[in-house]
Simulated assay, not measured.
Amino acid sequence: MFWNLTSPGHTVVKNRHGLVVRAAVSHARGTAERDTALELLQSLPKKRRKTVGADKGYDLKSFVQRCRDLRITAHVAAKDKGSAIDERTRRHAGYEVSQRKRKCVEEPFGWAKVIGPIRQVKQRGKPRVNALFQTTMMGWNLVRMRNILATSGTRAGHEPAWPHTPRRRRRQAHEHASRHITSLSKNGRNAAPVTCDRRFSTAC
Rank of each mutant, 00 (worst) to 15 (best):
M1W: 13
N4D: 12
T6V: 11
S7G: 08
G9R: 02
T11C: 03
T11M: 05
R16S: 10
L19M: 09
V21F: 04
R22W: 00
S26D: 01
S26R: 13
G30W: 10
G30N: 11
A32Y: 02
A32G: 01
A32V: 05
E33F: 07
L40W: 00
Q42Y: 14
S43W: 08
L44M: 05
R48Y: 10
T51V: 04
V52N: 04
L70H: 00
I72E: 01
I72V: 04
A74N: 04
A78G: 05
T89Q: 06
R90A: 01
C104T: 12
V105P: 02
E107F: 09
E107Q: 08
G110Q: 03
A112G: 04
V114P: 00
Q123C: 13
Q123N: 12
G125V: 02
K126A: 10
P127H: 13
T135D: 07
T136G: 07
R146C: 13
G153A: 02
P166T: 15
R167V: 13
Q172S: 09
A173Q: 12
A173R: 15
E175K: 08
H176Y: 11
H176R: 08
H180I: 14
T182P: 14
A191T: 10
P193F: 00
V194A: 06
R199K: 01
R199N: 05
